[in-house]
Design a protein around this nucleic acid. Structure first.
Lengths: 196, 196
DNA sequence: ACCTGAACACCGTTCAAGT
DNA sequence: ACCTGAACACCGTTCAAGT
């Protein structure tokens, strides 16, 4: 009858549920960003209470779902800096972030809503650090000024995924990105050639 | 028994309802931006269907409520241009818009959500024109470059009202506004003194 | 014509009862 | 310990019935 054998005990099925919820939620959010939590629970085959036990708010679930991918995006910074000029790397990376936020509608909100900033940090902070690294690399070449707050840049970048869908929107996003890059340039206005 | 006397007929009570809904909704939204439409209908003392007849979506009601005030804000542009240097007028006006959007939470969404842009225009367009006027005045002095799309500027400005509440947020908004102004400066980088 | 308000199919969230 | 799922108090929206 051995009610408890090793240290873990019953913990395993809870962990199993957690990962199944994440898996199903990922697809559900992709289909429809406004999908209800109840319906996700039903899809998983789990009681609503179980979902709420693991993820107390919609935002908590949303972030857990996308955190891994955000980390991947964040992790791509170093590689990009090796293959591109810093400012181009910044542009490419910003475009990737925007494309991601445009598709995964929820994540954009999480990156700009003041409330979310306080609660999470888990998504915000890595993104902020990634931008800091890109800006630092560009600043070293004198292509952007120093001391720009990366959090300010996130907020400016959020314009990129608020653009309307379609081709006109993409063109607008390109213009916006150039405006943002201009905003970051050194104040002198004298174009500095990077040293060979 | 004269079922219809003049041309208007029964139209007047519908009009009355419309304005009462707007009046009550204004206060209700001020108290709580997420207030339900049903509860507004109840506050007005009107059937839910009546509210929906006048304003088919939440956004429609929200915009109707704030349209008058937006117009007032838009109307203040000319006066500001008379009393301030164009670029300062732009700064002041942007701050006003941001403060307004920060308080009337809904309006910020209406000014940046792509869906809203298509549906409405009634709020978007005047704001866009106001910014165009400010930019044109500044461009005449050579303080900003020409050909900047005012809609791009709205999207950039939206960063101002996504800032967290409190003092830190206001400081961030100030930094952001300066970054945006920098983004609009002439590309030459040579500071042009306005002619006396 | 316009309005009412009950009714419908949901929603997020909780919590007693089970194992 | 953890899970279930009925239940609660809502929500937006519709539409037959009234005037």
């Amino acid at each position: 009858m051995a009610p408890e054998s090793s240290s873990g005990g019953r913990r395993s099925d809870a962990q199993r549920n957690r990962s199944r919820i994440l898996e199903v939620a990922y697809r559900a959010f992709s289909d429809d960003p406004d999908v209800s939590l109840n319906s996700i629970a039903k899809l998983v085959g789990v009681g609503a209470g179980t979902l709420y036990r693991h993820f107390p708010t919609r935002e908590a679930l949303l972030l857990a779902v996308y955190q891994e991918e955000v980390e991947q995006l964040v992790g791509s910074v170093d590689r990009m800096l090796e293959h591109e000029e810093p400012l181009d790397a910044f542009r490419s990376w910003a475009r990737k972030l925007a494309a991601y936020a445009r598709i995964k509608h929820g994540i954009g909100e999480a990156l700009t809503s003041p409330e979310a900033q306080e609660v999470i940090g888990a998504t915000w902070t890595p993104v902020s650090r990634a931008i800091a690294r890109l800006l630092a690399a560009a600043a070293e070449r004198g292509e952007v000024r120093e001391g720009v707050d990366p959090d300010d840049v996130i907020l400016l970048l959020s314009a990129l995924w608020r653009v309307p869908e379609g081709e006109a929107g993409l063109a607008q996003a390109d213009r916006l990105l150039e405006l943002i890059v201009d905003a970051l340039r050194p104040r002198t206005g004298v174009q500095v050639r990077p040293p060979k």
